[in-house]
Design a protein around this nucleic acid. Structure first.
Lengths: 216, 216
DNA sequence: CCTACCGATCGGTAGG
DNA sequence: CCTACCGATCGGTAGG
């Protein structure tokens, strides 16, 4: 039996995002983005090792060798998926918090952080968090170090919020351990949450708030 | 750059478990177990795709083709790792609960379930839960169905406990959603918990109880 | 970006 | 279980 037969084949490039111009009209940076977007989608649905650079090329509408015109290696594609994803999510997380206005309650900050994180984790076009969780090992040590720094910055924002709730008695676990448990719980939702199901993003957030702090 | 270079190489077969008899003295079933044990360890540390059957053969002290004398395919090894692991953990989970005696409090049952689950997830010689989380996609649909049944049976035991705590007001989230969040949180500990670190298994269990129910 | 190609590795097998 | 091997696939590249 062939191994590849065991995998659910990826759907044939649903071509999300901006519509397709004719090949000649797409700029070099658009092609670069095409490769990156399809790589992220395939790495998430099939796994890094199970995705060939030929799969990515076909999904991006190119010949087999062409992705290497935009990326020096397959590993560089994986790194770019994670680096760009983390940069975007760190930026949007900051915006969400600033939108709360001055002196928001710790509980409101946690709710906003959780809701924002869920929106990224279960977003139909954002694949990089599952990719980070599943394909961490496929990075080189140097790449791992760089992504770790981004991840630390993203997660560091949560600590003052958790510390504040802990002091207020609304979070009973130790904040450092709580943070690890909470990220595990939230990230796992990428595997089971169905956006077409009965739970909305707000429902999901409310249930998480109840579980971790006893109230919504 | 070669892809394999990106991976941390697996430690050279630390030969845990029973000591090595000379090759001629090991029975066929011992050899079978050797292959399965090394497969589990390598699938966990390197990933399924990044582990060759030659790696497994070498770790088990055989020539490259010999694992196929014991398993009909690489995929069958992965399946066996999960199936045997789930069978053992379901059995031990039942024993732990029965050891609580008659009419244990729901809180004591949850604590026992969490502690037992942690002991499996972070146990130095039990690799199958991380393997299940990471390599689910590599199973055939038929294999997935069978492992799903085992997983459902294992998780079903938690529902009466969560329902009981919810009715008692000690768990504020809806039990079905809570179960998904809780397994996400507990399983993720496989990635960060260090048995040589400052937290004991009991500490870990206590922090989880506090996070999910507000008290230890 | 495409064409044509290389060297390496892999799962699996026949035959003993 | 080992030996010797096959067919397929893969990441990556030269040359245009």
């Amino acid at each position: 039996m062939n191994d590849a037969d065991a995998r659910t084949p990826a759907p044939p490039a649903p071509r999300r995002g901006r519509p397709r111009k004719s090949a000649e009209q797409r700029s070099e940076s658009q092609r670069h983005a095409d490769v990156l977007r399809e790589a992220a989608r395939l790495f998430r649905t099939q796994g890094f090792d199970a995705t060939s650079t030929r799969d990515i090329a076909a999904a991006a509408g190119m010949q087999s060798g062409s992705p290497f015109y935009y990326f020096e290696s397959k590993s560089a594609m994986l790194f770019a998926v994670m680096r760009d994803g983390m940069a975007q999510v760190t930026e949007s997380q900051g915006q969400i918090l600033r939108a709360l206005g001055p002196r928001p309650a710790a509980r409101d900050r946690l709710r906003a952080l959780i809701r924002h994180h869920f929106s990224v984790v279960v977003g139909p076009d954002s694949h990089f968090i599952p990719v980070m969780l599943y394909e961490w090992r496929a990075l080189t040590p140097e790449q791992r170090k760089e992504i770790s720094l981004q991840k630390d910055a993203y997660e560091a924002v949560w600590m003052p919020v958790l510390n504040s709730l802990h002091r207020a008695g609304e979070l009973k676990a130790r904040p450092t351990v709580a943070r690890l448990f909470i990220f595990g719980a939230l990230n796992w939702a990428a595997q089971w949450f169905n956006p077409q199901g009965p739970l909305s993003l707000d429902d999901l957030t409310e249930q998480a708030m109840r579980l971790f702090t006893g109230q919504a």
